[in-house]
Amino acid sequence: MNDPKTVKKIKIGVLCTRIRGDEKLLFEEIRQRDDCELIKINPEHYPYLLTGKVPEVFYEPDVIIDRCINHSVAQYISKILHEAGILIINSPKLINICGDKLLTSLYLETKGVPTAKVKVAYSEKSALKAIEEMGYPCVLKPAVGSWGRLISKVESKTSAEAILEHKAVLGTYHHSIFYIQEYIEKPQRDIRAFVIDGKCIAAIYRYSEHWITNTARGGKATGCEITDEMKQIAKAAQDAIGPGVIALDLFEVPKTKDVPVDINDPSSYKLIINEINHTMEFKNSITTSGVNIPGKMVDYLIKKAKEKIKN
């Protein structure tokens, strides 16, 4: 037996700009392990060069996990750190893909992973054409955004014209990238599946009578058994976007067209991916799923750190 005092601790950096309940749970998980040391880093505290050395604090951890609440910060800092030879999880590529719904859909479709149908347009006129082709209802989403914000269910040409006009005057260029998704009639629930290194480690159902089921928007969560289909789609998604720590939003859709989903009959539905999250929130899913999600995350970080040290 190694004496815990003489074993070199794995130093885990947690990169975050705001500390929420999720980050605190991750801190607790790292602190309670004898073989780990926590290093908190706020990327807002430092200036950076694009090449050469990054601030010293980033060289101290064996591995860094990105938990930045701002996607744009996460996107750039992960790339800068990766280029400086620092092990950052998730990878800049994965963050780039998952932080942008358009890129997520592109990667999933290209790799043949089941996902909702999407059309993209860059002007109000072509967006209206795309919506008409998609059919009503359909869903308009900002390519970058979260927590179910600024998502619109478009039910008619009149509402499409109004929503497109509103988006055009919202100001930022993001709103002139029109991401149009087919509307999926859900059985008043969807599934949040937590995936690490291609393995589905936990899942919950999110119930809501509203068409938006995000728990940030009031959806209620219950436990969900991990099925073989869930394992397969998790692996396929991870293979498509690269390794890391992600959460999938899954829809149950009819296996046979026009035959509605019966949630008591798994043979009536199949799973498709709606979105993928790269900085997943998990604090409300631990008790519901019965899985120590931050524990699994730390296990993965230790594994990656050891691989890096070995090489």
Partner: peptide, 11 residues
């Protein structure tokens, strides 16, 4: 006071 949530915040 915490900053207001920005457009690119969230998971």
């Amino acid at each position: 006071l915490a900053p207001e949530a920005q457009e690119d915040w969230g998971q």
